[in-house]
Design a protein around this nucleic acid. Structure first.
Lengths: 243, 243
DNA sequence: CGTTATGTTGATAGCCGTCAACATACGTGG
DNA sequence: CCACGTATGTTGACGGCTATCAACATAACG
């Protein structure tokens, strides 16, 4: 088979990828994409499965194809804080370091596109645009972490929950809610349990639950079956989020 | 003057720099260092001066030569959170983005070594090691931010203050405290006011003050003139810091 | 020496955590 | 299909930690 045919075939595989134009692969031309594709394979995790532990030696990088991954940290006495959420097209892994600085767990069923460390690092040093892309990604993650510092340090439980819902709404596929919705409305399925939300927001399960019912009684959200959230007016919820 | 003489002169200047072997410049050989030096100049700020505001267009990168810089974020109603502290040898600036994602203020008198954006970005794309260094730096900042998420979300006021003091002790030049000190002891000058500590720890001034007096009465620290801290036993303070 | 900034201490209140009971959803095996 | 046990979520009563408000002490500064 001639090289161009192989290349087309590979390109086709990645063309079908849901996150092709949002993940780091978007930095790559057809040839480089083919090189990346050769070392990639898919891996699935069920909701609740651990992907890696803190201080684990990590020999893989990966893109999230679907689902949500929780990144967390633990105190010696068991207190936990989720320090990052990775959605479809987000990158998983840490360059320049063989071990994980936090643990990762599948919040929902998750599909990853993973690359072994060594060959991926070769690609990184060969393809300057790829490293740029990853660097830019890391800066965005840093910005997001700092936004969350402001949230954890200075906002109330109600504001925390409101901002969390808005963040999820931006990152999760919107689902239809009937033709009578206002333009400012949005509807989605929560990918996290109340316990995960609590660990992300620095609150307890009970407080998260209470704030959700309060937002509900205030008419800022509607809730079906615990996990389906409708926000009739995004701007009103934003006003309640303190920023 | 022959080129080699100029190069030696420039190398000499950087050789005298206090942070030469810790800042990003450590990635550079003599020739590249000379290129960086040509675009560098020093700039001083007095304690309390603003270096830049959030959303400002930033046309400079820089290294901290001496002093401490606070990076902060504001809510519309004025609540503030410090999201990062930059010490000697730390890098200031954000690649791939012309505007600041937080504001910066001199916590103490500060001396910066600054580089105009355009020529620095040229160096970045020319010198691969320099970009690697900056990337590695950013990953470390992300790790630090995530550590702080755990602190803000899940630790008590006492633990927060203890961990803050330990972090400062690691990053600030240790000062002598007499020959009778235990090996586990350390002594330093606090670079931040109680108000800054509060904004960094997500607490109020009063709570910070109370926790300091509590650590003092518990014998975990000694305080002179508000800003000079002696930690007789680092390991005991670590035990109080919850990790 | 007065004025302002910085820090400490006390009294009180409120938000959120803790403990407990209950409700609902989910999954498995009879 | 139902019974049962487990996981998840809600609600209530109560307490503690930290914020708020206030007064005072000390340091910094012109």
């Amino acid at each position: 088979m001639p090289a161009t045919m192989i290349r087309n075939l590979v390109a086709l595989q990645c063309d079908h990828c849901m996150v092709r134009h949002r993940a780091i692969c978007r930095a790559l031309g057809a040839d480089d994409l083919s090189r990346l594709n050769k070392i990639a394979r898919h891996k699935k995790y069920r909701a609740g499965e651990t992907i890696f532990f803190e201080n684990d030696e990590i020999n893989y990088f990966g893109n999230v194809i679907s689902g949500v991954v929780k990144l967390g940290k633990l105190l010696p006495d068991g207190r936990q804080q989720i320090v990052g959420l990775q959605f479809a097209s987000d990158f998983l892994g840490r360059a320049f370091k063989g071990s994980a600085t936090c643990h990762a767990e599948a919040a929902t069923d998750v599909e990853l596109c993973i690359f072994p460390r060594k060959p991926f690092e070769t690609l990184l040093s060969d393809i300057h645009d790829l490293e740029d892309q990853l660097f830019a990604n890391t800066l965005d993650e840093l910005d997001a972490a700092r936004d969350w510092l402001l949230l954890l340090g200075r906002q109330s439980a109600r504001e925390k929950v409101a901002r969390f819902l808005l963040m999820i709404a931006r990152r999760i596929p919107n689902i239809g809610c009937g033709a009578d919705m206002e333009v400012d409305a949005i509807c989605f399925n929560l990918p996290l349990s109340r316990a995960d939300m609590a660990d992300f927001l620095g609150l307890t399960i009970e407080t998260v639950s209470r704030q959700i019912t309060r937002l509900k009684t205030d008419g800022l959200i509607e809730v079906e079956q615990n996990r389906t959230i409708t926000v009739p007016s995004v701007s009103r919820l934003e006003a309640a989020s303190g920023q």
